[in-house]
Amino acid sequence: MSGRPVQLPHVCCPACGGRAFARSVGKKSLVYREVYYHCRNPDACGHQFVVSMEAIRTTRPSRFPMPRHKLPLTQWHSAANDRAANDDGPPSEPGTAAITP
């Protein structure tokens, strides 16, 4: 360990789009965390909001044989959807996909 404090990622403010920074951490477990963010928009937006972070799947199994939580195992590329043919355009609206019998 480097001894440096944990740095959480900055996110965009959902109100104004400015940068928001983590101020504190709330509810925590091994797979879930709530992070409290504060907008730093120079125009004084001041929005405060909570972001949830959750471990949802495993892309590479642990070397330890007895995990405390079992997450579903997926391939990294399929989980990230990096090379999917449907990434070229905007997402389709729900319920508009053609159904073939």
Rank of each mutant, 00 (worst) to 15 (best):
S2Q: 00
G3K: 04
G3W: 03
G3D: 09
R4L: 15
Q7V: 14
P9T: 01
P9C: 02
H10G: 05
V11G: 01
A15K: 13
A15C: 09
G18L: 01
R19E: 14
R19T: 15
F21C: 11
F21Q: 08
A22K: 04
A22P: 11
G26K: 04
G26W: 02
K27F: 11
K28P: 00
L30R: 10
L30D: 15
V35Y: 04
R40I: 04
N41S: 13
D43S: 08
C45T: 06
C45H: 04
H47E: 14
H47D: 06
Q48R: 10
F49I: 01
V51S: 09
S52L: 01
M53P: 01
M53W: 06
A55S: 11
T58V: 09
T59L: 09
T59W: 02
T59D: 08
R63N: 13
P67T: 01
P67E: 05
H69Y: 13
H69T: 14
L71Q: 06
T74W: 11
W76Y: 12
W76E: 14
W76C: 10
W76R: 12
A79Q: 03
A80V: 03
N81D: 05
N81K: 15
R83Y: 13
A85M: 04
A85E: 03
G89K: 13
P90N: 09
T96G: 01
A97R: 08
A98I: 14
T100G: 08
P101N: 07
